[in-house]
C-alpha cells in the first residue's frame, strides 16, 4: 500500500480505465460526428469533427437550466440529508438511547419498498402541499429516499471512532453536541464526504419522481431533460450524446473537489482500535 507503483501497475491501470471509460468515450466520439456518420460503420474518429451537436443540444432545449435545477436540488438534498442523517446516526451509535435496532430497522424498511409503488401517494402529498414544480417538491422525497443509506453508512463510520476521544472531551466539559461537532464529525469526514457524494449523485440521477412531480419545463432536472430530446419516432443521438457530455462535467468537477476529503479523514495517530 505504501509502495510506489511500478510501470506494470500503470499499464494495467490505463487498460482498466480505458475499459471503464469506453462507453463514455464512445459517447464523446459520437457527439462530435456529423449526423450522417453516427450510424453505419464503426469508425472511431470522424474526419469532419463538428460541434454542431453541441450547438443543437444547447439551443433546442434549456440544457443549462436543467443543470442549474439539478445542481440546486441535489445540493439542497445533500446538505439537508447529511445533517439529518448524521444527527440520527450519531444518536444511534453514541448516545444511550433505547430501541436502536428498531430505529435502524424502521429506517431500513423505508428503503425496501419499490419506489414505483410510492410515486402516487407522494405525488398526492406534494400536490396537496402545493409544491409541484418547485425545488422543494423534489428535495423532500429525495431526502427521505437517501436517508436510510446515509444513516446506515454514517453509523458504521461513527462506530469506528474510539470512545476514548469522546470521553476525554467529555472530561473537558464538552456537551454531546459539541463532541459531535468538534470530534466525531471531523474524524468521520471521509464517511461524511463519501455519503455526500452518494446522496448527491443519487439525487442527480433520479428520474421517475422528477418526471412526475416537476412536469413544467422550467423545473425539469437533467435526467428528464435529456430524455426530452427524443421525439416519438426519432432519437437525435448527436444531441443526446453532446448533452450527456456537457452534463457530466459538473459531476466530474464536484468529485475532483471532494475526493481529497474522501481519503483525508482519519489519521492513524488518533485512532486506536
Amino acid at each position: 500500500m505504501r509502495k510506489r507503483a511500478g510501470a506494470s501497475f500503470y499499464i494495467f491501470l490505463s487498460l482498466f480505465i480505458f475499459v471503464i471509460m469506453f462507453p463514455f468515450l464512445w459517447v464523446f466520439l459520437t457527439s462530435i460526428k456529423p449526423t450522417i456518420e453516427i450510424f453505419g460503420g464503426f469508425n472511431w474518429f470522424t474526419s469532419n469533427p463538428t460541434f454542431q451537436s453541441y450547438e443543437n443540444a444547447i439551443n433546442t432545449r434549456p440544457l443549462f437550466l436543467y443543470m442549474w435545477n439539478s445542481i440546486a436540488i441535489s445540493s439542497l438534498t445533500t446538505i439537508i440529508a447529511i445533517s439529518v442523517a448524521s444527527l440520527a446516526a450519531y444518536s444511534v451509535t453514541r448516545l444511550p438511547i433505547k430501541f436502536k435496532g428498531t430505529i435502524l430497522g424502521i429506517v431500513l424498511a423505508a428503503a425496501m419498498f419499490p419506489q414505483i409503488a410510492i410515486i402516487s401517494p407522494i405525488f398526492n402529498l406534494i400536490q396537496g402541499l402545493g409544491l409541484r414544480n418547485s425545488y422543494m417538491g423534489l428535495v423532500i422525497p429525495y431526502i427521505t429516499i437517501s436517508l436510510p443509506l446515509a444513516i446506515w453508512i454514517l453509523a458504521t463510520f461513527f462506530k469506528k471512532i474510539p470512545f476514548e476521544l469522546e470521553e476525554s472531551a467529555k472530561l473537558d466539559g464538552a456537551t454531546p453536541f459539541q463532541t459531535f461537532r468538534k470530534i466525531i464529525f471531523p474524524l468521520a469526514a471521509p464517511g461524511v464526504f463519501t455519503t455526500a457524494i452518494l446522496v448527491f449523485i443519487a439525487a442527480w440521477n433520479e428520474y421517475l419522481f422528477a418526471l412526475t412531480i416537476n412536469s413544467d419545463d422550467n423545473w425539469r432536472t437533467v435526467p428528464v431533460g435529456l430524455s426530452m430530446y427524443q421525439s416519438q419516432y426519432t432519437i437525435p443521438w448527436g444531441d443526446i450524446t453532446a448533452a450527456t457530455v456537457i452534463v457530466t462535467i459538473p459531476i466530474v468537477i464536484i468529485v475532483l473537489l471532494f475526493q481529497r476529503r474522501i481519503v483525508a479523514g482519519l489519521t492513524s495517530g488518533s485512532v486506536k482500535e
Binding site: L87, S91, L95, I97, A110, A117, I118, L125, T144, L147
Partner: peptide
C-alpha cells in the same frame, strides 16, 4: 444524553414516516 439522543433521531424518523412509511 438520552433525551438529546431521541431529539437527534426525531427529524429523520418524522421525514421517513411522513414521506415513505405512510405511503408504504
Amino acid at each position: 444524553e438520552s433525551q438529546l439522543g431521541y431529539l437527534m433521531v426525531l427529524p429523520a424518523l418524522v421525514l421517513i414516516a411522513a414521506v415513505t412509511l405512510w405511503p408504504v
